[in-house]
Simulated assay, not measured.
Amino acid sequence: MDPLGPEREDSWLRLEDASAIGAARRMATALARDRGFDDEHVGQVAVAVSEAASNLVKHARVGLMLIRPHPGALGTVEVISIDSGPGMSDTVGPIRDGYSTTGTLGIGLGAITRLADSYDIYSQPGKGTVLTMLFTARGTSVPDTVACGLGRPVGDEIVSGDALAFEETPDTVTAIVCDGLGHGIGAAEASREAVRVFRAAPEVTPVSMIERVHRALGHTRGGAVAAIHVDRRSRAVTYAGIGNISGWIVTPTGRQGMLAMPGIAGHNARHMRESRYELPPHAVIVLHSDGLTERWDLAAYPGLLRHSAHVIAGTLFRDSAIRRDDASVLVIRTGP
């Protein structure tokens, strides 16, 4: 039995040679079948994922691909492809039939975008490309999601000491991010306990959530934790945190940090409070563990804030994750 329960680890595939293309295709088709896709649709998923993986191997030299179930839609498969390859100055032209430019990810991109039920792409010359795809079983609506969380363990660890979860409604997003103290199984036990508490009552206020998590983590190593409630209709966010989870409100002109209290949830958290912030138009929320450097600046990525939460999270994850620590990032779009 898995001592950590049912929470699923993000499993990133490293695409370095042609043998990895088949592994990506098999993973995607198995997941699509498990999610109720018909044979024709499974074949389309196989083609799109194979094309994306092939592009990584051919043109980006080294890339990463994440294939997983959508966290809030049982009939949907998410695919996120990230690389630090040559990138493209034009992501519209490559989608046209017959377009091909040597040295870019243009080959096959048109087929990928036609076969996916939803997609987004962001690329910069010299920095690389992030491509995201959603595939949804026939008869199921494509989820109108505004949030995306990504994570990975440090080094050769099997599990990450970070964990996150979120719940969406048409007008709100509630979420939790936890960084268990240290690494490995012990850290993962703490962070997954925090997620379990969140899933039991995601509707409570952020400060109430932090209080519940603090009590629940007493038998674990403890960790840093942040909880958030985003109201997209009233344009407000309520935030509470203990320890060094970073919370930011990001706009095209800069970012504003959200207040967390010092301490370790489960062991040393004397003061708990929540803060409320007004959301500027088109603001994006970013929460991340200290496995991401705080030196990121989304102003260095022109137009990125207009893209999906998946693409923003993938870009931050690619360029800001620290290799010597578990890493997790959650991105929430607050506007259209």
Rank of each mutant, 00 (worst) to 15 (best):
S118I: 07
P125M: 15
I245Y: 04
D326G: 01
F135N: 06
P252D: 13
I264A: 12
R235M: 11
G151Q: 14
V146I: 10
I312L: 07
V62H: 01
I285Q: 01
V331T: 04
G126A: 10
A147E: 06
T104M: 05
V49E: 00
R235I: 09
R25K: 14
E193Y: 11
D290T: 00
A20N: 08
P94V: 14
G85D: 02
R8N: 05
S19V: 00
P86M: 13
H219P: 03
E278R: 05
V154F: 12
H271I: 00
R14A: 10
V45E: 00
D17T: 11
T334Q: 06
A216L: 10
F198P: 03
E294R: 15
P280H: 11
A216Q: 11
R295L: 15
D10S: 07
M88Y: 02
M88I: 04
L134R: 01
K127Y: 14
G222D: 06
R14M: 08
I82V: 15
G72H: 12
T334A: 09
D231F: 04
G182K: 08
T169K: 06
D2N: 15
S275T: 15
T129S: 13
A73T: 09
G87W: 03
R196H: 10
V207E: 12
Y99F: 13
G155E: 14
R295D: 13
L64K: 14
R152T: 06
G335L: 02
E274R: 08
H183R: 13
M65N: 00
Y99K: 02
S191Q: 03
G103M: 12
H219M: 05
G98V: 06
I121W: 00
T174N: 10
G257L: 07
D83Q: 10
S246P: 00
S328A: 15
L181H: 07
A48F: 05
A299K: 11
D144Y: 13
H310N: 15
D319A: 09
A300G: 09
A52N: 00
G72M: 13
I228S: 06
T136E: 04
A236Y: 01
L74H: 14
F198Q: 02
Y239E: 00
G186W: 04
L66S: 03
Q256L: 10
I95E: 13
D2V: 08
A53M: 06
I249V: 12
V47D: 05
A309F: 03
A236R: 02
F135R: 09
G223I: 02
T101N: 05
T136G: 02
G126C: 10
G93Q: 03
T253N: 12
A265H: 11
D90L: 04
S50M: 13
G241H: 07
D117G: 11
F135I: 08
G149R: 13
R276K: 12
L31K: 03
A226L: 07
P206F: 06
V329A: 04
V142D: 04
T334M: 07
T251W: 05
V204D: 10
D90W: 12
L66Y: 01
A321P: 08
G72C: 13
T29H: 07
